[in-house]
Lab assay of single mutants.
Amino acid sequence: MEVRTIKVFTTVDNINLHTQVVDMSMTYGQQFGPTYLDGADVTKIKPHNSHEGKTFYVLPNDDTLRVEAFEYYHTTDPSFLGRYMSALNHTKKWKYPQVNGLTSIKWADNNCYLATALLTLQQIELKFNPPALQDAYYRARAGEAANFCALILAYCNKTVGELGDVRETMSYLFQHANLDSCKRVLNVVCKTCGQQQTTLKGVEAVMYMGTLSYEQFKKGVQIPCTCGKQATKYLVQQESPFVMMSAPPAQYELKHGTFTCASEYTGNYQCGHYKHITSKETLYCIDGALLTKSSEYKGPITDVFYKENSYTTTIK
């Protein structure tokens, strides 16, 4: 009895394709271990004539594949690729409408935090270190965002349907971005203890939790000093293409032309909904596939993004 075979390709990165001759009487799992086709788990399936010449994702289970996976995804987590594939199996079914010149995501599976993050990423200057993220990001900007969303979920250790947080998501993504040249110098002034300067680099240099107003941050924000008295913390120097200011959701007025974009969060910790506000020729609110415009805006804002380049204080 002759062994019926077909020729397929296996890959971990969709760049390096490895030619395989597979036995049609055995499952993919018996031949390769966990195997995925377009995100779908085909591990328990036997090869079919229609699979001839198709590319299958496999887990990096030998040295060659491990090197290829690390170079593309910059992670050695053995569960990463499987999590990416199972997320992709959902995100490829989502709709990605162009809204006001940006790629958004039609609401499904509690994905409003991903839509808000995706919209924000198209408006701030950011370059990702893992080629996987950078490639998928370019495709997302062009309207094909399924891979990018699935990668975000995998890097953030999230599953489809789980509630997510924009600030946490951005923080994970910033860790995989090139923020080497970003720098922030802060000064804390206390009447009792004097003053202390701190220099922050990388992710810490672009994120701040405690106030939404970048102007206020430049002037000074009140913080408790270690001595128990009130101290003032203010920005001395900022070198970065953008800054992200966050605070627990509270009524906040966004003035046209003073910011790049913002995240609105309605609801409580267990259950809520994100919308995205962007400042173009007027203010726009993007909620999944829905767009509304207004000249002014007041609502429960939790993150505001500002364009920056270089700032030095005039406070002496």
Rank of each mutant, 00 (worst) to 15 (best):
L118M: 08
T278L: 09
T192Y: 10
N129T: 09
T11H: 15
H273A: 00
V304N: 05
V185D: 05
Y172Q: 10
N129P: 04
F242C: 02
N100C: 14
G101Y: 04
V58N: 06
G257I: 00
E296K: 10
Y234E: 01
D180K: 11
K46C: 13
L65M: 10
A146M: 07
E68L: 06
I15M: 11
V236G: 01
Y57H: 12
K298C: 14
E204P: 12
T232Y: 09
T11R: 04
L133S: 03
V243I: 11
K92P: 06
G194E: 00
T43L: 06
S294W: 12
F259K: 01
T199R: 08
I124W: 06
V3K: 14
L119K: 02
V185Y: 03
Q122W: 04
V22R: 04
E204S: 11
K93N: 12
E2F: 09
D287Q: 00
S295F: 07
T266S: 12
T11A: 06
T169M: 06
T159R: 13
S263K: 02
S240Q: 01
T278N: 07
M24Q: 12
Q98A: 09
T120V: 13
Q222H: 11
R83Q: 08
G29V: 06
N178G: 07
Y214M: 14
E68A: 05
K127G: 07
S25L: 12
T260M: 12
A140K: 06
Q20I: 11
E308I: 09
K219M: 12
L291N: 13
K46M: 15
Q251I: 14
F80L: 06
C193L: 02
C182I: 02
G272D: 00
G220D: 04
R4S: 13
L291K: 10
T5S: 12
T43R: 11
Q238Y: 01
Y96T: 05
Q197V: 10
Q30I: 11
E253Q: 10
L126E: 01
Y265E: 00
E162W: 01
P241F: 02
A145N: 03
A40N: 15
Y265G: 05
L235P: 02
G39E: 11
G257P: 00
T91F: 04
S310I: 12
G288I: 00
E68H: 07
D23K: 13
E308V: 12
N129H: 13
P300T: 15
S294G: 10
C156M: 13
P241Q: 10
F70W: 11
D23V: 13
I15L: 15
I301S: 02
R167W: 02
A115L: 05
T292M: 09
L88P: 05
V22W: 04
L102I: 08
T292Y: 10
G164Q: 03
S50T: 12
G228Q: 00
Y274H: 02
T91G: 03
F128R: 03
T75N: 12
N129K: 12
V185R: 06
H90V: 12
K307Q: 08
P241W: 04
N157Y: 08
C271S: 10
Q98T: 14
P241Y: 00
V221E: 05
M245C: 12
S181G: 11
R4F: 10
P249G: 00
M244E: 02
A136Y: 09
E125I: 05
C149Q: 06
V58W: 03
H18F: 07
L200G: 03
F259V: 02
D63N: 09
K106W: 06
T91C: 09
V166W: 03
Q122D: 05
Y36C: 05
R141D: 04
A117N: 05
P248C: 09
R184I: 05
A40T: 11
V3L: 13
L65K: 10
E168H: 13
N309P: 14
Q175I: 06
I124C: 04
G220H: 01
Y73W: 03
Y297S: 02
K293L: 09
V185W: 02
R139S: 13
I277H: 01
C112P: 07
G39A: 15
T64R: 10
Y113E: 02
V8K: 04
S25Q: 15
S86H: 07
L126A: 04
C182A: 09
F305C: 01
C271G: 15
K191T: 13
P224Y: 13
P78G: 08
A177P: 02
L283R: 00
E264R: 00
E144P: 05
C227V: 01
T116M: 07
V160M: 05
Q238I: 01
F32C: 12
T35P: 07
P47W: 02
E296M: 12
S213L: 01
T55F: 06
Q222L: 12
K293S: 13
I124H: 02
S310E: 11
Y73A: 03
A117K: 03
D77I: 03
T103G: 03
K93P: 06
T159C: 14
S279V: 06
Q122H: 03
G161I: 02
D165M: 07
K229R: 15
H48S: 14
K316R: 15
A115C: 14
Y73T: 05
I152K: 01
T312P: 09
G267M: 07
Q122C: 04
A247C: 10
H18W: 06
I277G: 02
T116Q: 05
Y172H: 11
E215G: 04
I286P: 00
L37M: 13
V221R: 03
T258F: 07
Q230H: 07
N110I: 02
H276G: 02
H90M: 11
P47K: 04
A108Y: 03
K229L: 13
D287I: 05
C225E: 01
V58D: 06
T43V: 06
Y28W: 12
K191D: 10
G257L: 05
A108S: 13
P130C: 08
Q31M: 12
M209Q: 14
A150P: 03
T258I: 07
E281L: 01
T226E: 12
V12H: 08
S181E: 14
T120W: 00
Q123M: 05
F305T: 04
N14P: 08
G288M: 03
K293A: 14
P78Y: 09
T64P: 09
T258G: 09
E2H: 09
R139D: 10
S310A: 12
G228S: 02
T76Y: 10
K307W: 03
L133K: 07
E253I: 08
S79F: 08
N89G: 12
L179A: 01
H176R: 11
L65V: 06
G101W: 06
F174S: 02
N16K: 10
F217M: 13
Y28G: 03
N61E: 12
V21M: 15
C227L: 00
I223V: 15
Y265H: 00
M85C: 06
C225G: 01
A87C: 09
N100V: 05
P60W: 09
I6R: 07
Y265N: 01
S86F: 07
Y269T: 15
K280P: 00
K293E: 14
A40E: 14
T43A: 13
C225L: 01
T292A: 10
L163Y: 15
T120N: 11
F128P: 06
K293W: 09
K93G: 11
D135H: 11
K127H: 10
E239K: 11
